[in-house]
């Protein structure tokens, strides 16, 4: 069944509250409702994880860029034009053969919007936020990522002003791919750390 609600049901409490807020802000002259549409359209069509994927693919193909990215994430990401709200101060952490990184925000839902878009629901959920710091390996297993104990798991709790992007490992067998083809392999979850980047099926 594609629907789980009756079409004649009243709107949810949240939807009604949002509508009330929008109406109040509009009546007080603080908001042109078209600005809301512009914001929604921005995060639906312009800003999302394809931006972060371009950063990753550039780092995989340009060693100088990768070095700049790891030293000063904000400046290197700005080179590709992906700066702005909730990405003002960026840190990029690199997965290697010895280290796997996982990003969380235990206090709320801090997330790098310009490179990854708006956070998925599970990233904001209490279970992910609580368990990611105490049992990262268990959380990773539920995402299908099994790591041996000799790989150090670093959890980044982005509860202050810095926002984190994981630079995943480039999969083997992708030597012949272009930067654009590599970017197409990079998933949102691989840049949060809850997935690895898979080589394309040959």
């Amino acid at each position: 069944m594609a629907h789980d609600h009756a079409h004649n049901a009243p709107p949810s409490e949240t939807a009604m509250r949002v509508k009330a807020l929008e109406t109040l802000l509009t009546e007080k002259g603080l908001l042109d409702p078209a600005a809301i549409d512009a914001l929604v359209e921005t995060y639906e069509t312009k800003i999302g994880p394809r931006n972060g994927a371009k950063v990753v693919a550039r780092a995989w193909t340009d060693p100088d860029y990768k070095q700049r990215l790891l030293e000063d994430g904000s400046a290197a990401i700005a080179e590709l034009g992906f700066s702005g709200v909730q990405g003002e101060d960026m840190v990029v952490v690199e997965n290697t053969d010895d280290v796997h990184n996982l990003v969380t925000c235990t206090l709320c839902s801090c997330y790098p919007w310009p490179t990854l878009g708006l956070p998925p629901i599970w990233f904001k959920s209490a279970p992910y936020r609580a368990r990611s710091v105490i049992d990262p390996r268990g959380v990773l297993e539920e995402f299908g990522v099994e790591l041996s104990d000799d790989i150090e798991v670093r959890v980044w709790d982005s509860s202050a002003e810095l926002r984190y992007l994981v630079l995943p490992q480039r999969p083997a067998g992708t030597e012949g791919l272009s930067e654009d083809e590599l970017a197409a392999l990079v998933t949102r979850d691989s840049m949060i750390g809850t997935a690895l980047v898979e080589a394309p099926a040959s």
Binding site: G29, L31, D32, A38, I47, S83, G84, V85, D89
Partner: peptide
Amino acid sequence: TLTPEMVPGLVAGGASCR
């Protein structure tokens, strides 16, 4: 008043706490 014309600048600019 927040208008659609202001949105791109706000989104791209941000507000660093640095």
